[in-house]
Design a protein around this nucleic acid. Structure first.
Lengths: 335, 335
DNA sequence: ATGAAAGCGCTAACAA
DNA sequence: TTGTTAGCGCTTTCAT
């Protein structure tokens, strides 16, 4: 392995000078030494050891990103954007999938801290509030909550404006004459985005003087089978809904599969609006009306936020709620 | 920040002993000190600095994963599985998306080496063969090529058996009476999987004494619009294909969108087989016949391979080709 | 069964 | 304009 010492020897300068060169501190450096160093580095194919430099500088240029599951295209897109931005800033990302399992999340937080990451972007499972509060927030560790808040905890948050987004969907259905609207969501278990979407749904109904019928709300296992089960339940009701709002793209997959299998026609038999304008919603037939999240903006805002936090940590906490957009397609109809 | 020294002071032992404790070297350790250390760690909420330990041990417990794009559900599933396995082994992953841009890939390799990752799982863009050869392979750096080989370079490889998989698809179409079969793929530009699939396609045709008509092969930009363009080209031919084989799930998306828009019916007007049994192919109507890659096995094999390479580096290179599976659905028909 | 001391590769005062 | 020196937090040899 070739180290800074080897370069120093080869270039006939001290390693301090090499270090200065590597860190772009050219202020007082003579042109000739600069050239000699450059050549030595080239000749030796030297690559600075970032672990050593991290130890010394107390900065790793690494951001931890903790999400539920990278197979969810929403998170995939978020991570893609985030990594791209961070790459340009010479930062790397350590990716952690928790599967919304608090035990895994706990271990992820622990090791990310042990690895001295400069900051964490966290989509929490909701099951580690104490740890997050004690070991991150109270210690002023640079943290940005993404997509989900932690109940009762003050921290920077970057997320979709779930109330606005839900209203967008509900408004659309309402204006098309729908009054019995079913809602499908995942077990809330402390996941704020899910709770907020349900609450907004209920609030909307109340504001529009529609009876809130608890049987129109299904919440269950957030996967494809869950979606099937949910839509089956809702459509089996005595008085079934004319429209369905799926708040999770993963559920939507199951909903569509179920409707196809049962030959229930969208939108004639039932209208559908789904959260997340993921890339496949326009290839199902008919293409789905969707609430699009501003994923790139979420990624940008999260990274801005974490870097601000890293730089000075005395600012008040921010809450950045970004609006969703309604993409109208043909899965909804007027009745 | 609390360090190993603080724990040593608190537990009234030397930091050597603490270090032994942290590394599970209990052999000669008295029960009483063990307990005192445990308590001190607990009291101080001490978390070992992994950067320091990495520097000393020359091992980071970090694997770099370089892929083209995490938004491709194939890679998302691969990374998900890989991260899950590595997590259990107390390893973390640094994720790098290159977008198949060799410049980005080069920088990723550089920084991963600088960060002293213990190994790299690489899906190469095909544009950095020299770098890969000189800085990784020749230096015996633990490397596993995933999904794509590097032409002319000897290294461990874990990938789909592209010939077998392509044959599976072609056999299926052939047995259903198709003789004019169109192939859609992305620009090959050194990406071996794409080349292998085209070659297998041609080989199959020759073996079955079917004229290979170059106009039935479309290769272009590997995205949704590419898919649209490709299917449009192929179906506009004088003598259009009766079946289409899409070797890229991203292209398939565009193909389906195009066919829906033009109201061309699958499988009556054209049959479709797609590579990658990604989660949405069964929700399009009709559900798509797909070649399923053994993603979990690919992830397991890659990780086995990289750890073997890390442990002893004198073994001959392995080439692990895993078979695909044909999932028959209703997007193909007999003619 | 435990500790002292050297050192991993780098950076940053401070000195010259 | 450059170098000397101490030290980041840990592990490991060697000693006891």
């Amino acid at each position: 392995m070739t180290t800074i010492n080897d370069v120093a020897n080869k270039a006939k300068v001290s390693k301090t000078t090499i270090s200065r060169y590597l860190n772009g501190k050219y202020e007082y450096m003579s042109e000739s030494t600069k050239i000699r160093i450059e050549k030595a580095i080239e000749d030796l194919n030297y690559r600075p050891n970032l672990v050593a430099s991290s130890l010394k500088k107390n900065r790793t240029k690494t951001i931890g990103i903790i999400i539920s599951n990278i197979e969810n295209p929403f998170f995939a897109a978020f991570v893609q954007k985030a990594e791209q931005i961070l790459h340009k800033m010479d930062n790397n990302v350590i990716l952690c999938n928790t599967g919304d399992d608090p035990k895994i999340e706990r271990k992820d937080i622990d090791t990310l801290l042990g690895r001295q990451v400069d900051g964490i972007l966290l989509t929490t499972s909701g099951g580690n509030n104490d740890l997050i509060n004690n070991d991150l927030i109270k210690k002023d560790f640079p943290l940005v909550l993404v997509d989900r808040r932690v109940s009762g905890l003050k921290a920077d948050l970057v997320a979709l404006d779930n109330e606005q987004a839900t209203y967008l969907a509900m408004e659309h259905l309402y204006q098309n004459g729908h009054r019995r609207i079913g809602l499908l969501t995942g077990y809330s278990a402390g996941i704020s985005s899910r709770i907020e979407r349900i609450n907004a749904y209920k609030k909307f109904l109340i504001e529009h003087e529609i009876d809130t019928d608890q049987s129109l709300v299904w919440s269950g296992v957030p996967n494809q089978n869950g979606g099937k089960e949910g839509v089956n339940k809702l459509l089996s009701l005595q008085n079934p809904p004319t429209a369905l709002l799926s708040t999770l793209n993963i559920l939507t997959l199951g909903i569509i599969e179920f409707l196809n299998q049962k030959n229930i026609k969208i939108p004639n038999d039932v209208s559908i609006v789904t959260f997340d304008d993921v890339y496949w919603v326009k290839v199902v037939s008919p293409p789905l009306t969707a609430i699009k999240q501003p994923i790139e903006e979420l990624a940008k805002a999260s990274i801005n936020c974490i870097f601000e936090r890293m730089n000075k940590n005395n600012k008040p906490f921010k809450e950045i709620l970004l609006p969703g957009t309604l993409i109208k397609r043909s899965s909804t109809r007027s009745i």
